[in-house]
Design a protein around this nucleic acid. Structure first.
Lengths: 149, 149
DNA sequence: TTAGATAACTGAACATTAATCAAATCTTAG
DNA sequence: CTAAGATTTGATTAATGTTCAGTTATCTAA
């Protein structure tokens, strides 16, 4: 047994998919060469970043989902981009945004369960630039990445 | 001019993409029939929900991104699923989660600009089940849908 | 308004890829 | 050990994406 599944999950999280030109052409009743032309144009303009899979995260062992708000120290808060970029590299983090208002950063993280989340949180909050944080645990994911679950 | 672009955006937000089996096979050095078998298995198990595009949302006129927290009334809070499902139907809403703790719902919405967001917010908050809300405006989207921006 | 230039569209030929299938191999439970 | 089921794989077939040249539409400047 080759255990292909985790490799597929890793690849599909960020890409390795492609548009179904023929199906779209049928759906909106246009020639497939026209669809092809328009898609390539959007790709060239960088309006499309990638094509990827959306998972049932429970079924791939990432069912525990939490939103974390961060308040940075005064110094770090003046230049939050660097910290945000470093956080964003973490594979468990689905999204990172810099915020206006009371808190500086919001991120959405996925883990297997509470225990795995706790370890993740500990490692994330180990940075000295973080003054405090609040976690909001998702009890039910109704929609994610524009897809109803 | 046929204005295909908005149709493509609508289709790509939720699907109309497919895995690149041959490319994955090359990447991880396995026969493409094996990759095909494993992907179909994951699809059958419903571990994969869909294949979709990720956009540079600024470039498709959805650059204004906000997280909204909702506190429901006591009655509605006892059964928040129905309200969450209704909210999730809105095309401008990227994600909806039910929360543990102080607030009941968090959602991520995308609009063209502040004006469009204001109209959206007004329509969303018109529901009598919502006791109060807080909006957190994203100043910079560092990562979204597992994709670095 | 018009001519020229550029962008968008499209059918047809071609290249690549996905899907299928049958045989071989591996895994598991009794 | 053995039988049943799951996984892997090469080879064939079906379907799809890509290219290109010719057409049509749109835009720009005189």
């Amino acid at each position: 047994m080759k255990n292909i599944k985790p490799k597929l999950i890793a690849l599909f999280k960020e890409g390795y998919c492609t548009p179904q030109i023929a199906r779209i052409a049928r759906e909106i009743n246009e020639p497939s060469a026209t669809i092809h032309y328009n898609i390539k144009k959007m790709e060239k303009e960088d309006a499309i970043r990638t094509y990827k899979a959306v998972f049932d995260y429970k079924k791939i062992g990432e069912g525990f989902c939490v939103y974390i708000l961060l308040k940075l120290t005064a110094e770090a808060g003046a230049n939050p981009d660097m910290i945000a970029n470093e956080l964003a590299r973490n594979k468990a983090i689905e999204s990172v945004d810099l915020l206006a208002g009371e808190m500086d950063v919001i991120m959405k993280v996925r883990a297997k369960d509470q225990d795995e989340f706790y370890e993740l949180l500990r490692s994330l909050l180990a940075r000295k630039e973080i003054e405090r944080s609040t976690s909001m645990i998702s009890l039910r994911q109704v929609k994610s990445e524009f897809v109803l679950l």
